[in-house]
Simulated scan of single mutants.
Amino acid sequence: MTTPDTPSRKDENTIGAIVARLLLESGAVHVTGAKPFVLRSGWASPVYVDVRRLISSVPRRRELIGAALATVRERIGLDRIDAIAGAETSGVPFAAWLAESLSLPLLIVRKKPLGFGRNAQIEGDAPAGARVLLVDDLTTDGQSKLNFCRALRAADLNVEHILSIFYYDTFAESRRTMAELGAVIHPLSTAHDIIEQARSGRYLAPADIDKVEAFLLHTSEWSKAHGGIARLP
């Protein structure tokens, strides 16, 4: 097994910069020219981050998992996790690589029960009370995490921490959702990291950077003005 390139000593800001660079280099960051992106939860946004672009590059995903390992070690503690759960579907590959690196059981949690056979919402096995780290690729307002955490807890699993490869970190609703969940989100990168790296590395045009910054400053207003929701229903 190939060992990921684990950062030996990196603070949160440095990890954010590394992962933002990986996303920009892989072409995962898209800024709209005219028509805004509408995210799954209904928010309109000028920027969309396709984290799945990272799964095809071996060097980049190895560096990414190294950053994830450093985050788990420094912010959660390796001895406080008994299993890794990948959120359907985009969180699964990242969860699998992390579980393999930590020699921990892997679970897959679906958005809803399968609908046939065992009608399972959770695949894999972990003992009741196991401390599970939920892994997903992207977090906007946190509503999908609410669903995943409820499913895991209904299976008598303990979920206190969520690892997200990218986190918009601009929706007030996400903070309220995490408070409601009683879970801490650990993002590897945020939209603010993307902006900082884009400026330093010239990955995005200045006009695109200005557009994303305007969105981050006035998210609800920007979304509403461009056909999206201004708040959760």
Rank of each mutant, 00 (worst) to 15 (best):
M1A: 14
T3H: 10
T3Y: 07
P4T: 04
P7D: 00
P7W: 01
R9C: 05
K10S: 15
I15C: 03
G16F: 04
L23Y: 09
L23T: 10
L24E: 00
S26V: 02
G27T: 04
A28F: 06
A28Q: 09
A28E: 05
A34Y: 08
P36L: 03
V38S: 12
R40Y: 14
S41E: 14
A44M: 04
P46E: 05
P46I: 15
R52S: 03
R52Y: 00
L54D: 02
S56Y: 05
S57M: 05
R61D: 04
G66T: 08
A68V: 05
L69T: 02
A70E: 08
V72A: 11
R75M: 01
G77T: 07
G77Y: 05
R80C: 03
D82S: 09
I84E: 01
G86R: 02
A87L: 07
T89V: 08
S90M: 09
V92R: 00
P93Y: 11
A95P: 01
W97H: 10
S101V: 01
L102Y: 04
S103K: 10
S103R: 08
S103C: 08
L104H: 01
L106A: 06
I108N: 00
V109D: 02
V109T: 09
R110C: 10
R110P: 12
K112S: 13
P113E: 03
L114G: 05
L114V: 13
G115L: 05
G115S: 03
R118P: 03
R118L: 11
N119C: 01
D125E: 15
P127E: 13
A128T: 12
A128S: 13
R131D: 06
R131T: 03
V132L: 02
D136K: 15
G142F: 13
Q143W: 15
L146D: 10
L146F: 12
C149N: 10
R150D: 07
A151K: 02
L152Y: 01
R153K: 09
R153C: 05
L157G: 06
V159F: 10
I162G: 03
I162T: 03
L163N: 05
Y167V: 06
Y167D: 14
Y168T: 12
D169S: 13
A172Y: 11
A172E: 13
E173C: 10
M178V: 13
E180M: 15
L181I: 06
L181A: 07
G182P: 07
A183T: 11
I185T: 15
L188G: 00
S189F: 08
T190Y: 07
T190V: 07
A191T: 13
E196R: 15
Q197I: 12
Q197E: 15
A198Y: 07
S200A: 15
L204H: 11
L204Y: 10
A205D: 14
P206E: 06
D210L: 13
K211I: 08
V212N: 14
E213H: 05
E213Y: 11
A214V: 01
F215C: 13
T219S: 13
S223F: 01
K224S: 13
H226K: 08
H226G: 10
G228H: 07
I229M: 11
L232Q: 12
